[in-house]
Design a protein around this nucleic acid. Structure first.
Lengths: 165, 165
DNA sequence: ACACATCAATTGATGTGTCATGTACTGTAT
DNA sequence: ATACAGTACATGACACATCAATTGATGTGT
């Protein structure tokens, strides 16, 4: 294991390093997620010419009545930084998947709108992608395990919100 | 929810879409991991000027007797594509964290070696980083939950190896 | 000895994410 | 009206990842 280790800490401090069990759990988790997302985005790309990021954006837009959302709102629903969204939308516009529209009331604001091409793309990609998620993840877990995964995920999300900055 | 949905499928087919519980679990998981890694790499960068990628490489190298590993072996221990490693090592060399060395026996091969600067960097960064992992993840979960997370992760890793391509 | 496949690693092009900064518009206080 | 802080988004520079193609070394068959 890591030779970076310096000192094991003493009895009544918070241990500086992870216990073997903790480390095993943490490494398995990291490794697992890396592989799952890598695989997922490769399959998505192969079947649909969409990246995971594209997919997220398109799903967010189709979840809205007329496939249109204000830049800001879109950023918050997909939980991206503004600047990332700006760059990504610029690229998606070049590929014809979405379009930018001005806002009448507020001169600063902008809308992102799904184009017919974009709608076709997401409608074509979604079933494949969901099937892959099911095949790689859902099917591998029992209902109990899946519920546990959800519980753990939610607990960690809470923790992130609660722990200082 | 998604308006991309087309058809709910019938009784004895594999359902095309995810059930609400499945979807909830899946989305929580994705969201959780995005946030955890984002947070982790931001804190790492802030405290140590190392990226998550740098950290991985440096840990892998310190895990080796003399801080030296063949390019290929390094790629497999961190589980990266060759080309990614090549680019990344090139950048790390520029920053003086590692160095490239020739291999006497095989003219094609190369070694990556930890420099004193690199060793200092990882030794300085590791305790901070481990503490962050503990604070954000380990502390939020009960021992049972942590064990469960490990079990689920391992089950999914198996699944990835078993499912076609 | 020579042609040829294979291997280890690199390179260049392109798409993507992040940071710091810029620009245009809005709303408010004076 | 005018100044000015704040908002909504864009841009440029750079770090990073992936793909396709390349270089140079090694091995193999003839």
């Amino acid at each position: 294991m890591s030779r970076v280790r310096v000192d094991s800490g003493h009895m009544n401090e918070t241990p500086q390093w992870l216990s073997p069990a903790e480390q095993q759990a943490w490494r398995a988790f990291v490794r697992m997620h890396q592989k799952v997302t890598a695989r997922l985005s490769r399959e998505l790309q192969a079947h649909s010419k969409l990246s995971g990021a594209d997919y997220e954006i398109l799903v967010a837009l189709t979840d809205t009545p007329d496939g249109r959302q204000r830049f800001q709102d879109l950023a918050s629903t997909v939980d991206w930084e503004q600047t990332r969204l700006s760059h990504h939308i610029a690229r998606m516009i070049k590929r014809g998947l979405v379009a930018r529209e001005q806002c009448a009331e507020d001169g600063r604001a902008a809308f992102v709108v799904l184009t017919p091409v974009g709608r076709k793309a997401i409608e074509a990609a979604a079933p494949q992608h969901v099937a892959t998620v099911r095949r790689l993840v859902i099917d591998a877990l029992s209902p109990d395990e899946l519920a546990m995964l959800a519980q753990i995920s939610n607990r960690l999300l809470e923790q992130l919100d609660n722990v200082s900055p």
